[in-house]
Measured scan of single mutants.
Amino acid sequence: QVNIAPGSLDKALNQYAAHSGFTLSVDASLTRGKQSNGLHGDYDVESGLQQLLDGSGLQVKPLGNNSWTLEP
């Protein structure tokens, strides 16, 4: 069960990665100043990332080996 409060997208993504045990490689300029609506409930990694990114204009991309990145 994930419980991440709304706020900074950077912070939300870092909390989610730490909670879910995956690696997220992101260029900080992509997420700077963006906000997230947070995340509450049970999600697989990709669904949770998509939910956190909702409205940010960013997309999640798998890199393999439980690693992910973001792209515009």
Rank of each mutant, 00 (worst) to 15 (best):
G7T: 10
L39E: 01
Q51C: 13
Q51D: 04
G48C: 05
D10I: 13
L70E: 04
L70W: 02
L70G: 05
D27S: 08
L53R: 00
P72R: 08
G55P: 00
D42K: 13
G41K: 02
G33W: 05
D54N: 12
V60I: 12
D54E: 15
L39I: 08
L58R: 01
N37A: 12
L9P: 01
D42E: 13
K34L: 13
A18Y: 09
R32T: 10
Y16V: 02
N37M: 12
G48N: 03
S67E: 14
V26W: 15
L53Y: 00
Q50P: 00
R32Q: 12
G38W: 03
T23W: 09
Y43D: 03
L52R: 00
L49T: 00
N66V: 00
G48A: 08
G38F: 00
T31Q: 01
L58V: 03
G7K: 03
V45Q: 05
Q50S: 11
P62S: 14
E71Y: 10
L39C: 05
H19N: 10
S47C: 13
S67L: 11
Q59R: 14
S56L: 09
L52T: 01
S25Y: 15
P62K: 15
A28P: 14
V26L: 09
L13K: 02
V45N: 05
L53H: 00
Q50I: 13
A18S: 10
L24V: 09
D42A: 13
W68H: 04
K34N: 03
V26P: 01
F22L: 10
V26N: 01
F22H: 05
V45F: 12
Y16D: 03
A28C: 14
G7P: 00
L70F: 06
T69G: 11
Y43G: 02
G38H: 01
V60K: 05
N65F: 08
S47R: 11
G41C: 07
Q1H: 15
N37K: 14
A28M: 10
S67I: 14
L58F: 04
S47N: 08
K34Y: 07
Q15T: 09
L53N: 00
P6H: 05
L39W: 02
L9A: 01
D27I: 08
T23I: 13
T23E: 11
S36N: 02
I4L: 04
G41N: 02
A17T: 05
S29C: 15
K61L: 09
K34R: 08
K34A: 05
S47L: 08
P72M: 11
P6A: 12
L70Q: 05
N37Q: 12
A28Y: 08
H40Q: 13
A5G: 10
Y16C: 07
E46A: 12
D27T: 06
A18L: 12
D27E: 09
Q59P: 01
A18G: 07
S36E: 01
G7C: 11
Y16I: 04
E71Q: 08
D54F: 14
Q15A: 12
G7M: 12
G48I: 06
G55H: 05
L9Q: 01
N3T: 11
Q15M: 11
L49D: 00
V2T: 06
G55M: 05
L58D: 00
D44R: 05
Y16N: 03
L70C: 08
A18F: 10
V45G: 04
Q51E: 09
P62E: 08
H40F: 13
G33C: 13
V2F: 10
T69Y: 10
K11A: 14
N37G: 11
L49V: 01
Q15V: 07
K11I: 13
W68I: 07
E71R: 00
H19A: 14
A17V: 08
V60A: 15
E46N: 06
L58S: 01
Y43H: 07
S8D: 14
L58C: 04
I4W: 01
Q50A: 12
T69Q: 11
L24Y: 09
N3E: 09
S56V: 04
S29K: 11
Q15D: 14
A28L: 11
D54R: 15
L52P: 00
K34I: 10
Y43V: 07
Y43P: 04
G41V: 02
G38P: 02
L58T: 00
Q51G: 06
R32F: 14
D54I: 15
Q50C: 14
T31S: 02
Q50Y: 10
R32A: 14
S29I: 10
A12R: 04
H40S: 12
P62N: 14
S36K: 00
